[in-house]
Amino acid sequence: MNIFRLTGDLSHLAAIIILLLKIWKTRSCAGISGKSQVLFALVFTTRYLDLLTSFISLYNTTMKIIYIGCAYATVYLIYMKFKATYDGNHDTFRVEFLVVPVGGLAFLVNHDFSPLEILWTFSIYLESVAILPQLFMISKTGEAETITTHYLFFLGLYRALYLINWIWRFYFEGFFDMIAIVAGVVQTILYCDFFYLYVTKGESGSNKINPA
């Protein structure tokens, strides 16, 4: 464990908690893409099946359980409890255009052709594009609430910190995982446009960003 990975995990946890609390406190999921949240729940489910097969550390197990729990709680709030506030008309990204190619790629490019490893690979590829429905929805509505932009900032920051973690681990441990690194680079690049808006709009204090 290094400071970049720890900060990355905490940033990820912060994003997940921020979103869950925002929906819970405002009792509304307006402006939130339910599709992205379903994809994240799928990412955690397929990646953390090793909870049943191997124990790495208390930290690892605890965080996985928190991530999975919060992901499903968020999906529940969006599609069940606060269903009336779900903005289905703007959450129209065709997720099958993500899941199918990612599923195929996971079969073609992986470290080991075993069920757990293919599911892990699927999860890594899917996570890199899972935010697209959310970014698409924001571009359609033309605005995002401030709290939603903080959620996206921490979510984007987490994988950027993981990229530094992988540089650190390669240099100090000789460890590197090409699949995770390539997917992580793609994932972080998808946030660049948002990061630019977040920083520039954040300074002007306007409470909504208007992506191009």
Partner: peptide, 10 residues
């Protein structure tokens, strides 16, 4: 070919 090294990251 990677060993059965587990994924230790989240």
């Amino acid at each position: 070919e990677r060993s059965e090294e587990r994924h230790d990251e989240l």
